[in-house]
Design a binder for these strands. Structure first.
Lengths: 233, 233
DNA sequence: TTGGACTATAAGTATATACATAAAAACCTG
DNA sequence: CAGGTTTTTATGTATATACTTATAGTCCAA
């Protein structure tokens, strides 16, 4: 059992993957430890570690110190999906991008937004509704709230030139973001803006972005009918 | 500039992240090479490598041999999202899970499915419609096609006991899958099955799974209104 | 001026070694 | 035997070193 021809972490990973897929190692099984595998594969333990770490990160293996490594029992797979800037997404399809600011104002947020953005009651936020068009046709519209305390300079910016999203990513550092994906039914407002029928199912992304504990912005993107998001594992 | 207190790859990564966020290193900038950083941070080059590799994987840095490492110019962020088995998702929320098989038959697939599954014309596939319930209420229904050539034994399995998805992940190895997320409008059929109103917007996941070039199964999951998928970066 | 060969460079990887850390398992001790 | 302590063990990490590989940049010749 000393094949000894696995000299790169990729080949070790491929071999481990093969054994999992071929059910030589079944879900729940402990696999040999790193030291044993390094002997079997004829490589250093660090190489085995590198290979197994990758598989653990993608959810295929469970690893615990002292306990060992086992093939994951519940196959929660992790897919990575790209969150592009809308302009790049549209231009990447060879279409021309344009966007317009429908309204821009300073206003009291509704309670849901106020809660999600963790601002005190009575604070007025920047409220911005924009429409992004692909080849002149409505593609997605964004209903966005921005915390001006977290983003000094936003009110001086000309968001008709550069979209709010692009302005923010270019000018405001952020640590993280929450995303949620869902569906909604087009009401009168959505139907008008997106030039679709009332009652159509629309794809929705809600995103909040924060930095240093402050929520910078919260936006709801409502896509025109037919929009799809893809990924693979 | 020899701080020298970054002795773990996590702390190096955090410091690099801080500099990017603080715009000390701006998008498009080349950052010092690994050797220089290892001197500055007072650690080994391998440690710097480990830190930067992670950031490159999440799309924050662009790395090329010989050229060097630069802060990513276009901020395509990569979010990872978990694809759980529905039963775990429901049970994880503390609700009781149940599923029923609405129909199970061997039939000719419509042309869209036939194309996606890359089977020859005239081949009959297993067609399965199932409903998954959370606390007795419709949660999601799956319209699934299975290629019996890729899955010997599927027709003998009792899919009323274990859902098709669970049976497949437990019994059939697979290499990869395609996912697409979208929204649809509830028609009469969806409204009936999910006990919702016609014309509601529903969240939809289409998934195909393959192994060794053969498409194993293709399923459309249509979720009851209100479903959300979450992730963060 | 183009295009191919060469070179220098930065990331990528492999390895032996050593130590750190989490946690299961064994061992007390009252 | 319960409850706490110690030991053991597998993974996790750091390091120096050496080599590999991709490729930007340079040089040279047709």
């Amino acid at each position: 059992m000393s094949g000894g021809e696995f000299k790169s972490w990729q080949s070790v990973q491929a071999e481990v993957l093969r054994r999992i897929n071929a059910r030589e190692w079944k879900p729940g099984d402990f696999i040999p430890n790193e030291a044993e595998l390094s002997v079997e594969f004829g490589c250093a333990r660090a190489t085995v570690n590198r290979a197994l770490r990758g598989l653990a990160e993608s959810g295929l293996l469970d690893r615990r110190r002292k306990a060992g490594t086992r093939v994951a029992l519940n196959p929660v797979r992790k897919a990575t999906l790209d969150i592009p800037v809308i302009r790049y997404e549209i231009e990447g399809k060879g279409q021309t991008y344009r966007h317009t600011v429908l309204t821009q104002e300073r206003a009291m947020p509704p309670s849901g937004i106020q809660a999600r953005m963790q601002v005190e009651q009575g604070i007025r936020l920047v409220h911005l509704v924009t429409l992004h068009l692909a080849d002149g046709k409505p593609y997605v519209f964004g209903d966005r709230w921005i915390n001006p305390e977290a983003v000094p300079g936003i009110e001086a910016a000309d968001l008709a030139v550069k979209s709010a999203n692009e302005w923010l990513v270019a000018n405001v550092p952020f640590e993280g973001g929450d995303f949620s994906f869902s569906a909604m039914t087009a009401g009168k407002r959505e139907a008008e803006i997106l030039a679709c029928k009332e009652g159509e199912g629309l794809f929705v992304i809600d995103r909040s972005t924060w930095n240093k504990g402050l929520v910078i912005t919260s936006v709801r993107l409502t896509f025109a009918p037919g929009y799809q998001m893809h990924t693979k594992i």
